[in-house]
Design a protein around this nucleic acid. Structure first.
Lengths: 216, 216
DNA sequence: TACATTACTGACCAGTCAGTCAGTAATGTG
DNA sequence: CACATTACTGACTGACTGGTCAGTAATGTA
């Protein structure tokens, strides 16, 4: 609109390397908030402080932007998780807790958390991206937990169990909590202090609900 | 298109009461599959076997159709759940398992399951509907589980616990499983036999992961 | 047959938005 | 200064879709 305000900020110099990252960050926020179709590229560009034309200098289409947001956002986290797991030795209960807490710090409480909700919402419209996400995030993420559980069973700290189902039971509350913050979260103002929540969650998981062992 | 095929089915008589239900069923399927914005009313009408004009005889706008799909779809299930709970007496572990199984039969394996995913995806675009859903589905649903847990604690079958967190831990795998079937489910062809999954899930929840009680 | 009512249709309109591109501004370089 | 290159802009367009409404078909009924 107003072309007279050129130097809106003194640090507002050209940083050509930063443009795609800025655009992807803006797109992630809006995709998570409104969904892919309901997000206008004009709004994405505006939030990144550029015009729509600039967006098309870096991304060939709206769909390419979507793919970039999903693919480049989450992969580094998995890399770090696998690195962390390969170095840790010792108590598997603590390891499990440490990994979940770490995930919370790196994903759950950052803007990356929205990717989970975004992928679930849009999987039907982007089967190829969904497939990519499944193979590179879901399968690898489950693999991390599987390793911890198998170590724990081998060391007799964990009971024998159906490991695949246990992975679901462990990850589901994490994922729901994450999704929640980007959907129905604003409806309930309680549920603060995620670290405390995580600890309680872990204790329940480790010890179960029953007072006594129940053979069955 | 082809207006010559009028009697496509012998039972294809006018059933004016059925029209809104047919339209809502078609809309639910498409909303879940594609999201609200990406769903075209022409497609909804076509799937219900009528024209777009007919849709507007029963729903004032696309948004009203959305509200009707959410509000009228899920409420009867909660009514039945509360009825069931008020009549049951006895072992709370079994009660919990029975309720989760029942929920699976009435929601999880029916087309109603999609409402969960739909509401999570679209909550940001429809805050009022989200608020309604939160108060009438989430709060009531959690109330059902809370009652079971409190009964179990009172009868000493369940250990003392943070009940609100336990509700999360119990419901999250259910909800994730449901959401999964309508998003990334098609990517992994495993994960069949939900009844067996539910039983394993219950066992893990009740007994926990550890071999021995851990004081902390 | 004549008329009324109900159910439905689909061409049309008006608004929206992804994607384009001719042109501008800033910077570099000799 | 002249010229080239890079970064960016925003008005424009073409396709699409929510919503409308004049008209048609089926049924009722007298």
């Amino acid at each position: 609109m107003n072309t007279t305000e050129i130097s809106e900020s003194p640090s507002r110099q050209r940083r050509k390397e930063a443009r795609p990252a800025e655009l992807m960050a803006a797109a992630l926020e809006l995709f998570v908030e409104r969904g892919f179709t309901a997000t206008k590229l004009d709004d994405v560009a505006a939030r990144a402080g550029v015009s729509k034309g600039t967006l098309y200098l870096y991304f060939a289409s709206k769909e390419e932007l979507f793919k970039a947001v999903i693919q480049q956002g989450i992969l580094p986290v998995l890399d770090q998780g696998e690195e962390m797991l390969s170095q840790f030795q010792g108590d598997e209960g603590l390891l499990l807790e440490a990994m979940l807490l770490r995930w919370w710090e790196m994903v759950g409480c950052t803007h990356l958390a929205g990717i989970t909700k975004l992928m679930i919402s849009e999987a039907g419209n982007f089967p190829e991206v969904a497939q990519f996400y499944y193979e590179n995030v879901i399968v690898r993420g489950r693999g991390l937990i599987r390793t911890v559980l198998e170590r724990g069973i081998a060391s007799k700290q964990f009971r024998r169990m159906d490991v695949e189902t246990a992975i679901d039971v462990i990850l589901a509350p994490q994922m729901m909590f994450t999704i929640w913050r980007h959907s129905l979260g604003p409806c309930d103002c309680g549920k603060q202090n995620p670290e405390a929540y995580l600890k309680t969650h872990m204790k329940l998981l480790l010890n179960g609900l029953l007072t006594t062992e129940k053979k069955k």
